[in-house]
Design a protein around this nucleic acid. Structure first.
Lengths: 218, 218
DNA sequence: GTCAATTATTTTGTATACAAGATATTAGTT
DNA sequence: AACTAATATCTTGTATACAAAATAATTGAC
């Protein structure tokens, strides 16, 4: 692979937690992971500390490290916060956005369109993330930008699922149009509302998806 | 002190970074800190990984750990986000808040009043934090609550300074009144605006404080 | 005397060793 | 056969040892 420093190991483990290699509550065995990564326990433990600090694992003293996947309730809460964060980004961006940035945003949206036409959900997801990241950046507040990116990353696996739902990509696209329009007009309230709704739709879709799974399980 | 695990060491160092024991760019010497805490380098390094993960230090490979204090610009950005986060809390709380919680909020405000009367800025600060924390909690979104508490903690040292400014405590109190009123009325927009403004005042005060320092230095 | 190059000294990164606590296993009792 | 007690094994937490890189110091050339 690559060089295996604590940061790298942490990133790899993070990825594995995100993509579902580890389920909620799984214990992360230090010796096993250490030899798996080809390092000693020392750098591996440093990685575990990082992961706990970012909320991905729980460290129970003398017991070990346990992965902490967000449950349905926490996910809904995270979606709600994401929606509000993006709304704030949009409101700030509406005032500060340059013409060049607007062009960039339209270009990103065109790429989304192409992905949607090709029925390529993975590509759509990537381009969609760029679209949103552009708005974060154009908020002009880099702290806000970083926080938004962090949460975007954390919600990635769950957002991704929803794009596969029938008709979601075209709907998402029309919502993007409304967002671009509001930003072009410099209407901060409209932009904030459009983006908040856009993200909230995902939260709601997610909710109904969970309800469906729950019903199917009973 | 207490038991010196990685978490504890990280907390102690965090406190020291917050209260200004270390200035921006200071290198954190592993061996020196280790013997200072009475432990070996191993748990201390684990603590440093935690601190980097939470953004308090920068870890440069083969160079060491350097403390990262937010500069004036980043602080302003953080205040802006704090204001928006609290506004969201208020909006959600306005709908969900129970009578008991409202009473609790009024009680917290009464305690602020007492601290203000006694000219006790430290006490006022503590009670003020409780007032705000109650609103975070009453948002009904514990993820949002935790994020708000995290940022509140990080801004603590900088908010604190401003209470010493003449007339800030009484002004803060009247703003609290308006917030309680809006929450009582269940007016989510008014509550959100009142809280956003309340926090933004601190950001602006901070800005003028910085400008004053800068002017004095030239 | 100043600069460059070489050597010496720190300092970081990681492996390993060992102590103490937690879990699993076995033996013994009813 | 089931429950408890004692023992054994495994795992974590931390100290220490050592290699490699970075910094400081020293020497030598001009």
């Amino acid at each position: 692979m690559e060089q295996r420093s604590a940061v790298n190991i942490a990133n790899s483990l993070e990825q594995m937690i995100f993509d579902g290699t580890f389920a909620d509550g799984d214990r992360l065995d230090e010796v096993r992971l250490a030899e798996q990564f080809g390092v000693s326990r020392t750098p591996l433990r440093e990685a575990l500390q990082r992961l706990e600090s970012s909320g991905l694992v729980t460290l129970i003293p003398r017991r070990g490290a346990f992965v902490r996947q967000p449950g349905p309730l926490e996910l809904l809460e995270m979606f709600e916060v994401m929606a509000e964060l993006e709304a704030v980004c949009a409101r700030l961006a509406a005032r500060r956005m340059s013409d060049d940035a607007l062009d960039e945003l339209r270009l990103a949206n065109t790429r989304c369109q192409a992905a949607s036409d090709a029925q390529d959900t993975d590509l759509y997801y990537m381009e969609n993330e760029k679209f949103h990241a552009t708005i974060y950046r154009e908020s002009g507040n880099s702290f806000l930008e970083q926080e938004s990116l962090k949460l975007q990353k954390r919600l990635r696996p769950f957002r991704r699922q929803q794009l596969r739902l029938r008709g979601r990509m075209p709907q998402s696209l029309t919502e993007h149009e409304a967002i671009v329009e509001a930003l072009t007009a410099g209407d901060s309230n409209a932009a904030a509302n459009a983006l908040r709704d856009h993200v909230n739709v995902q939260g709601e879709r997610f909710q109904s998806l969970m309800a469906g799974l729950k019903a199917a399980a009973s």
